[in-house]
Structure formats: structure tokens, C-alpha cells
Design a protein around this nucleic acid. Structure first.
Lengths: 181, 181
DNA sequence: GCATGTGAATAGGTTCACAGCC
DNA sequence: GGCTGTGAACCTATTCACATGC
């Protein structure tokens, strides 16, 4: 497959595809293009997708539930190995093969189960504390749904999903569009 | 408040704050800084947040439910005015003050209720069709949770939330970090 | 005196275009 | 002949630095 075709599929340009790939090495064959199989394998390895990841869910609310049951996570190698919630009503509940745990056990469980990723799906006021505790317990990355900017050391990557901001970005674009028209 | 202080809060630089704001006008006072109240109001207006938006939810699964019950949406002026799902079991169910509707009524309801934003929280295979139908019915913007790139006319902004990609971005950063170390 | 707003300088990222290899 | 990989050209965004106005 040529960079041209890859670009069409990825909503970008052929030159962009070639530059981006060249950043990680030389994958294609001149005159021929890229082998899809080879390219997939190389990219999976670069992206760290050729292995599974041990994930803890922090916050067993509705967003937590939706994530927990989201089949795409499991199928991509993200394995739930623990769930935490501070609500005494929820602690002890069974979620699939998991049981909701108390935050009291947080550090111990993270370490014992060798958890690498933490997904924070809890209200803003508890998020910073749990982020810090997760970092101190040795977690490698955080996916944050709480609408605050977490303060963590730079060695620990954080990805933010801010649902309100996504809607606000739409509102902005629509409002701007009206201005031009 | 000075651009310096705003920058510290927003994880950016003072020059960046001033440049960004200058793009929309001149809000500050030399020697003094910015009036927080004035700035908030002006920004809310620029971002289109000084009004409410009529939103339809497409897909009454677990992600849809989590969004529907997410209090921050309502409190920011995003009003749910319709819910759609193709599952006959779900059609007719009451969700708060709403009733889950059949996609058969989609266009009619969007138009009758003057719906401006659509949130797609359904599997990838139905998303493109519903996006097109929404656009044809006059929707102004789409928030898309389905893991596909929607093909819609450029006048209709789309924001994508791809949960798997967020996790993959973490995996990548962790894997890269290991390489440096 | 102090902090904005903005040209000028710099850095970063995208596109061009072509030599080199299949 | 066809398509990659990559310097060079270009364009956009960030940072600098200072004249301007409070």
C-alpha cells in the first residue's frame, strides 16, 4: 500500500505519512509502497500495543461502569485487574470477575497486582489525591476523566478526557461559523 | 489578574496567554492585567457558552447513560431534549424526563425540537448513517464516541472521543519513556 | 512602574520536490 | 516507471522584547 493510499484513509497527506513513519525508521520499499502486515506489526510494537496492560479503575460510578464494560478495552489488551470506590455501598460489590475495593487497600493492591495504568473516573475533588497516591505506588500512566489538571511528575504521562470541553469545542466552532457566514 | 498568573494556572506561558487573547480583541489593561469577571464574560461569549444548547443522545447504552446522567452537562447549559436507540427493548423506556425514541422518528424529532447538537454513543457500524441523517436534518455539530472517522460536510464540526486511542497514547508514551531510560 | 499588545525572531511542523532504489 | 526517504522551502505557532498606555 502506498503512502498515498494510507494518507487517504487517515485523512492526511502522503508526505505527512512518509515523514511520520520515517521518524521511527524506514519501513517501505521504493517503487512498491508499504507492506501492510509489516507496517502493522512495527507500529504495534512502537505504540506498545504488542503486549497487554494491567489496569485499575478508580471510581465505580456510571462512567466507570461504562468503561469497565466497554468491550474494546479488553479486546485491545487492557485488562481490568482492580476496581476502587470510596462509597461503602459499592465496596464489596461484584463487577464481572472483579470486586469493588476500598481505597484503603489502594497502594498495596497496585503494588501486589503490578498495576501499570490507572483510569480515574471520579469527581474532581478526589482525583488529585488518588493520582498522587497512584504515582507514589509506581503506576506508569493515568487516564483522567476528572475535569481538573492533575499535578504529577513529568515521568508519568497523563491523558485527559474532558467531556464538557469537547462539547464546548463544538459550541465554539458553531459560534465561529455563524460569525463568518 | 496578570497574564503571568493566568499562564501559571493554565499550564502555559504569559506570552501565549496574551497572544491567544489578542486574537479575539484587547481585554486587559496595561500596568494592571485582566479583570477576571470581564474576561470570563467575554470568553463565555466567544466560546458560545452564554446560551443553552439543545442536545440529542443517539445510543442508549452504558456510555449513553453515563453521559445522560453526567451532571456537568446539564449545569453547563447542554439540555437533553431527545434520546434515540434502535433496540426495541429500550424504545419507550423512561430516562429521567425523557423517553427513548425509535430512530424512525429521528429526522422529524430533530427538526421539531430544533436540535443543534447530536452525541453519537453507539457502535461503529451505525454511526456513519446516523451522522449523515443528523446532518441532513440540520444538526450543527456532532460529538462522536464511535471509533470511526465520520464523513460529514465541513460546515458541520465533529469532535471525536476515542477511548481506546487515549489508552494507546498512554501505552506509547510509557513505551517511549522506557526507550530513553 | 507595571503589564499589555504586538512586531520581530525563533522554533516547530508541514509541504514540496527530487535523488535514489525497487 | 513508481514510490520512498529526505533535504530544502514554506508556513504556522511560540517566544522574545519593547513601545505604548494605564
Amino acid at each position: 500500500m502506498s503512502s498515498e493510499e494510507l494518507a487517504a484513509r487517515g485523512q492526511t497527506t502522503a508526505a505527512q505519512v512518509r515523514k511520520d513513519l520515517s521518524h521511527f525508521g524506514s519501513f517501505g520499499k521504493r517503487g512498491l509502497g508499504y507492506s501492510v502486515d509489516q507496517l502493522r506489526d512495527r507500529l504495534r510494537s512502537i505504540l506498545g500495543l504488542d503486549r497487554s496492560w494491567r489496569v485499575a479503575l478508580v471510581g465505580a460510578g456510571r462512567i466507570g461502569l461504562a468503561l469497565f464494560e466497554y468491550p474494546a478495552f479488553r479486546s485491545r489488551g487492557y485488562d481490568w485487574v482492580a476496581i476502587f470506590d470510596s462509597d461503602p455501598e459499592k465496596i464489596g460489590q461484584a463487577w464481572g470477575d472483579q470486586v469493588v475495593r476500598s481505597p484503603d487497600e489502594f497502594e498495596k493492591v497496585l503494588q501486589d497486582l503490578d498495576i501499570e495504568l490507572v483510569i480515574l473516573a471520579l469527581p474532581a475533588d478526589g482525583a488529585q489525591e488518588m493520582a498522587m497516591r497512584a504515582v507514589d505506588a509506581g503506576v506508569r500512566g493515568i487516564l483522567n476523566f476528572a475535569p481538573i489538571r492533575l499535578n504529577v511528575p513529568p515521568k508519568v504521562p497523563v491523558e485527559d478526557v474532558n467531556l464538557v470541553m469537547e462539547l464546548e469545542a463544538l459550541s465554539f466552532q458553531i459560534t465561529q461559523g455563524e460569525r463568518d457566514a
